[in-house]
């Protein structure tokens, strides 16, 4: 097996790729199963719409542009009109912007905070661990919807408050998962090896433990994102979320509920939008979690 150093081997050595090397990601996408690719397409689709929304809407989203309410799909109003005669396509495009932006931001905040705190609890002494665990346990006791209602009742409904509410409501769950992951990893042989080597706590946390938490936390993130979308939609449905005339996807469903009996597009389409978005995110994340790991080498038979 001994071989002289080839220039190629040298350059590979010098490159010393980190765990997020392009090669690794390339392999990851190649390995993505069909369901994961469908998820990726759905997520990209909604992200694109949210991004381009303001530039492609055919009508101003707040303006009453038709005299017919719940108009069927037509060339002028591709997705029909809502209960006031506003253009549905424009409203969905702008609504997706609220839902995707707000829910994504809140889910990222919840997962990131949970991961950092969980890691901290696992590697610090007993006191820090106890304190953090009890604090977040208290938070987890309150059902997230009730927590959201309290927050909105106290602070009113504004975008920053909604973001904070959604993030706080789901940080405790993320923390629990992150902590138990980190505790398990911190007794593994390679962490033990790092300790015997004399590594500091920060190195052990960030370099030895954290990279191995990314995959499971990503899977957890998908779940959390879905819950947050549902919670925000629920809040909007109760009229406590994004305030009119602006509307996220959940508000759109509520506004147009009276059209449900007629099977109006105005109520079905936002519902389908919420469904496809959450399904897309979860398919993508499951695909990443299952097939993102590097190919196993020849282990024991």
């Amino acid at each position: 097996m001994n071989s002289p150093a080839t220039p190629k081997a040298r350059s590979e050595l010098a490159a010393s790729p980190g765990w997020l090397s392009p090669a690794r990601w390339r392999r990851r996408r190649n390995a993505l199963p069909a369901s994961g690719r469908i998820g990726l397409a759905l997520v990209l689709f909604w992200a694109l719409l949210a991004l381009l929304g303001p530039w492609v809407i055919p009508h101003p989203p707040g303006a009453v542009v038709s005299t017919t309410v719940f108009a069927p799909m037509s060339l002028r109003f591709p997705l029909g009109t809502d209960y006031l005669g506003r253009d549905m396509l424009s409203r969905i495009l702008i609504g997706a912007r609220y839902t995707v932006g707000l829910a994504l931001a809140a889910a990222v905040a919840a997962s990131a905070t949970g991961t950092v705190l969980g890691l901290l609890a696992a590697i610090s002494g007993r006191w820090v661990d106890e304190l953090l665990s009890r604090l977040l346990d208290a938070l987890i006791c309150i059902p997230s919807m009730i927590f959201a209602l309290i927050m909105v009742a106290v602070f009113g409904s504004s975008l920053p408050i909604l973001l904070l509410t959604a993030a706080l409501g789901y940080v405790a769950g993320a923390f629990r998962i992150a902590r138990s992951l980190a505790v398990n990893l911190s007794v593994s042989d390679y962490v033990e090896a790092a300790r015997v080597r004399g590594e500091g706590r920060l190195h052990i946390a960030c370099v030895e433990i954290l990279p191995n938490m990314v995959h499971p936390m990503l899977a957890d993130f998908g779940l959390r994102f879905m819950f947050i979308v549902l919670m925000l939609s629920g809040l909007s449905f109760l009229g406590l979320g994004v305030q009119p005339p602006a509307a996220d996807l959940g508000s759109l469903i509520r506004e147009n509920l009276s059209g449900l009996g007629d099977g109006a597009a105005a109520v079905l389409l936002p519902a389908i939008a919420v469904a496809t978005l959450t399904i897309g995110v979860n398919l993508l994340i499951d695909g990443l979690a299952d097939h993102g790991r590097p190919e196993g080498g020849g282990g024991k038979a």
Binding site: M1, N2, S3, A5, T6, K8, A9, R10, E12, L13, A15, S16, P17, R293, P294, E295, G296, G297
Partner: peptide, 11 residues
């Protein structure tokens, strides 16, 4: 082999 440097343990 020196090329192993670029690999990860599962490989």
């Amino acid at each position: 082999d020196r090329s192993i440097a670029a690999r990860r343990p599962p490989e």
